[in-house]
Nucleic acid binder design. Structure first.
Lengths: 356, 356
DNA sequence: TTTTAGCACTCTCGGATTTAAAGTGCTAAA
DNA sequence: TTTAGCACTTTAAATCCGAGAGTGCTAAAA
């Protein structure tokens, strides 16, 4: 009865919420007696026991063994998080804290993300991360060069998403400022807006004949491939790794090893975040997704938008019994601040029809 | 008697060596009986017991408790490593492996270091790291700019040690290619070879009046400070973090947390490596140095030289009972390869008296 | 004088046993 | 429908015990 939302009576919800929160705080299974004593529950322990038995049979709770208290199941956490998503809020103090931390003005996404992972970690006390997701079909829109000395110059690549990458190129042969100007001119003519696999031998031959130095073209092409790879390869910054250790869940087990490995390989986490749609905060609890790595962990993240497109994400990773309320609120605000920072009207679009 | 070297008789050295190696392999205390059975020791267990008792009173061995075997003390490891340093060698197979892994041609120190830490980790099976040490008194020798669009350009800084850094600068006001040329010209005239604290208000005022855009100068100066900070701030790349977990020494304890923290803070490890002199492989065992972080760990690294100057280091970190022979040999070779790579004659010096 | 064999002693580790605590499910009463 | 009470289960901690390993010491052998 009274099951208009999620199939649970109000009292069941209340009990589930109380159990999740108690377990988040203490890390131990929580029993009926504890709930009657310390909480806003007005019924007796026996009643709660009955309700808990039902919640368990519905899959929201688990019992490590007979006569331990109950622990939320992954489904239980999920329900809690979903319910929470509608109502979380931050204290004014915490918002002020975020604002202050973000005052460190940052101008480039790469460095924003780096700081953001640190901030996320320090605010939530979990391991923080920031990500620039893979995105196929990014190409180079424009090439620039800058002469450095007789044997080296800088190649600047402006990508279709606005990011700018540079490469330091060193060559055997003597070069002149004229040489590098030629390089950028030729590149701008031949290699614009091509995918990595569209750059074929004829194009390279043409480049060589026009620049007149095969080794140089070689070095340049290698850099271009590298940059193209980086552009859609995604980046992952992690900070506060040591915070994982404060939770007994990770004290010993191999889960910690899996997480560390995942942070180094990056692919799993990049995939997970890249495949996600939507603006709000996402929570991946246990192995909900196909990524087995985060088996007994929770990954919470919020996408970051710039000009309507997802350009990154920030999040935290921690044990199943994560302080969801706090994390959700923090990420929501932090993500909002970063999005705002990115969209400040200092950097106008290049003007597609306004410039020609 | 017969204590010409290190104050130990030859037999004591042999026993110490056998104990260290047995303990490295097995991870357990080693007793006198084990040594007589499996090793090249020709005397009886009783004799070994006597020698071990002496080695212990001299500080080279420790006993976890009465009637466990002996474990090398930090001093014991140190002696072993010092003795080893004179004679280690690699198998041809391992050298071939290094050479192949380094075939991935790399052109810049930053990226060399990144790969190097991975290679070091995968060859030794310990956590690898690569470092670019702090070095005071690096200044910017030359500025270049490249126009990107009406609101952004690239600032290129060529440092006195030859490294090149770039910064993407975004400004509110409209700019032209002429503007950015002015910027580099003025910078090249006023801000060359200055330390961060030598850039004072008069210079900035002069810049503003010449460039004519205070906000732009502001952004530029901020980037310059950042780059100067990075140049002498050092960098630390770590890879194979998860390998730490395979050693029971780090399975549970807080040592792991300290290490993870140290890798994130970077300062401790940077200081440690930056303060070291000499070409060869260095081993820091336990808390030999003032860095308390690596209390129950060993850090082994080899400096990397370019044109006679130390420009970085590669190393590994692991438990006290590290396979020193293997690690020392690997790092020696790997470091040598990188040094060679850096000094390949493709990149000649800018020619101090040869060019003018 | 140095090495070895033998033996008593100490200590830890693993397993088995016990005890205390916690929590449940169920029944019967309110 | 809720509550009180109670018997039952199960775990975690404490205790005990014996086996095993290794030592130090003493006395004999080289």
């Amino acid at each position: 009865m009274a099951t208009h939302n999620g199939g649970l009576s109000d009292r069941k919800k209340l009990i589930l919420k109380a159990i999740v929160e108690a377990h988040i705080q203490g890390g131990e299974p929580v029993g009926s007696k504890y709930l009657t004593e310390s909480q806003q529950l007005t019924c007796s322990s026996a009643t709660i026991r009955n309700e808990m038995a039902e919640l368990e049979s519905m899959g929201f709770l688990e019992q490590p063994h007979t006569s331990a208290g109950r622990v939320p199941s992954k489904q239980g956490y999920r329900f809690y998080v979903d319910a929470l998503l509608e109502e979380y809020a931050m204290t004014a103090k915490e918002i002020a804290q975020i604002n202050q931390l973000m005052k460190v003005k940052m101008s480039e996404l790469d460095r924003i993300l780096d700081s953001a992972s640190k901030v996320a970690s320090s605010l939530t006390n979990y391991t923080g991360f920031a990500i620039k997701p893979r995105s196929r079909s990014i190409t180079v829109n424009r090439f620039e060069t800058a002469f450095i000395d007789n044997h080296s110059f800088i190649l600047i690549l402006v990508a279709s998403d606005g990011t700018v990458k540079t490469r330091n190129i060193i060559v055997d042969a003597e070069i002149t400022p004229r040489t590098v100007t030629t390089v950028s001119d030729v590149l701008n003519e031949l290699v614009i807006e091509l995918d990595a696999d569209e750059i074929n031998l004829p194009i390279i031959m043409e480049l060589e004949s026009r620049v007149g130095d095969a080794a140089l073209v070689n070095a340049v092409m290698k850099s271009i491939y590298e940059v193209l790879g980086e552009l859609d390869g995604g980046e992952l910054k992690v900070s506060g790794l040591d915070r994982l250790l404060q939770y007994p869940e990770f004290a010993d087990s191999e889960d910690l090893g899996q997480l560390l490995g995942a942070f180094e390989r990056k692919e799993d986490i990049l995939d997970l975040v890249s495949d996600t749609e939507g603006d709000g905060v996402h929570a991946v609890i246990g192995s909900e997704s196909s990524v087995k790595v985060i088996n007994n962990s929770t990954l919470v993240f919020k996408p970051i938008k710039s000009k309507g497109k997802t350009v990154g994400a920030i999040g935290v990773i921690g044990p199943l019994r994560m302080d969801y309320a706090r994390v959700l609120a923090t990420l929501e605000n932090l993500g909002g601040n970063i999005t705002q920072l990115l969209n400040e009207p200092k950097h106008k679009e290049k003007g597609d029809s306004h410039d020609g």
